[in-house]
Simulated assay, not measured.
Amino acid sequence: MFDTAHAERTRVSIVEFLSELGISRVTVLCPGAAGLVRDPAHIGKIRGALGEALRESASPAVRAGLPCTFSPPCAYAELWFPEGEIRPGKPMPSPYVIEADTEGDGLRVTIKLVGRAGDYLGEVGDALIRGLRRGLSGKRWIRLEPEARTYSETIGLADPGLTAQVSLRFLTPLLVRNSENGPHIEPGAVLRGMIHRADGMARHCGIELDADFPALLEATKAVEGVWTDVDVRDWTRGAVRQRRLVPMEGALGRLHLRGDLAPFSPFIALAEELHTGSRVQFGQGRFRIEQGV
């Protein structure tokens, strides 16, 4: 696993980065709550509950909207307000994702922390329990009582070795901003989003990817893509502190890619684990590789 606490930024290939990437997880099971997965806003509500619980132990400076004065920084600052930019105007990605799945009649919630964000795993696990017990906001307050909690850590992701084609099934709505043919659908924009996200996650870990990014981004234009089973979703999420509803959107479906995929294979692997597109922190852009060669 990369030791980034005091080291200068290391330059490695995307495959090397994958092989050493540490991901820490806390998973809780909430009985009788499986029906929540039908609501596309449910992960945003879980995020809100977790954020409020983490904010309780945040530094006074962060609670006042200022940089954290704790050393090391509090979990709320590190996860909700990561410092730095990938490039001017492009902030660093949040070093976590939230996933929710059904398990029998229960809801299984998993928080993944990337790289050094894993140092906060215990605090995040405790805050998640408190937040779920306090409840998820909405038209009606939903309180959840987890009956089980587990922690785990993995080091390394495998490159699937994609070369010519792959099908990606999106499990949560995908949103791609600034695509050439509108949101959701332009395959090249999906690949470019994966490349940018990998760059940001590497920088969060103190790593600089040894890659010809202009050439990679240009090569996405030669990849053919077709969407099937598309289901565009629209919903709103509540911004509690802003006291307003925020419009949300995204597309479910299968994206079938064909072309020279070898340069993009490790980026697709990372995106499968850590999602892709916009608003990932609200659970969007989660997919599974269904088949590929």
Rank of each mutant, 00 (worst) to 15 (best):
G131K: 03
L209R: 10
R244I: 08
P173G: 05
D199F: 01
V28Q: 11
Q281P: 13
R192M: 06
R192E: 13
Q281I: 12
L255Q: 09
R254N: 13
F17K: 05
A269M: 03
M248F: 04
D126N: 12
F2E: 11
Q281R: 13
E147H: 02
P88I: 01
G193R: 05
H204N: 14
R279S: 14
T172N: 04
A53K: 02
S13T: 15
S13R: 00
L18H: 02
H6R: 05
A75G: 07
G115S: 11
T276F: 01
G104A: 03
R25A: 03
M194I: 04
K139A: 13
A215D: 15
E290T: 13
P72V: 01
W141T: 14
P82N: 10
V240H: 03
I268H: 04
R177N: 12
V97E: 11
F81W: 00
V293I: 09
D199T: 13
L113S: 06
E123T: 14
P67V: 05
A269T: 07
G250R: 00
Y96A: 04
G285K: 06
V223T: 10
R243W: 00
E224S: 12
H256G: 06
V190Q: 11
V26W: 00
L21C: 05
G89T: 11
S278Q: 09
V240A: 13
Q165G: 15
G259T: 08
S13D: 08
L157I: 11
R9M: 15
W235Y: 14
P263T: 08
E56S: 08
A202S: 12
L54N: 10
V190E: 09
G138D: 09
L171G: 06
L21K: 03
D210G: 08
R133S: 10
I195T: 07
D231C: 02
P160V: 09
L121S: 13
I195S: 12
R243G: 10
H204F: 08
L113W: 00
A158F: 01
P82Q: 07
L245H: 05
A100E: 04
A61Y: 05
G44T: 05
Q165R: 13
G225V: 04
L162H: 07
G250Q: 02
D229G: 10
G188N: 07
L66A: 12
G48K: 05
G285P: 06
G51C: 10
E273P: 04
V293K: 14
M1S: 15
V97Y: 02
A100P: 09
D119H: 12
H184S: 07
F282G: 14
I129F: 02
T150Y: 03
I142G: 05
L54C: 04
R11T: 14
F70M: 10
A7L: 11
V226M: 10
G292W: 03
P67I: 04
S94N: 14
I129W: 02
K139W: 00
Y96N: 06
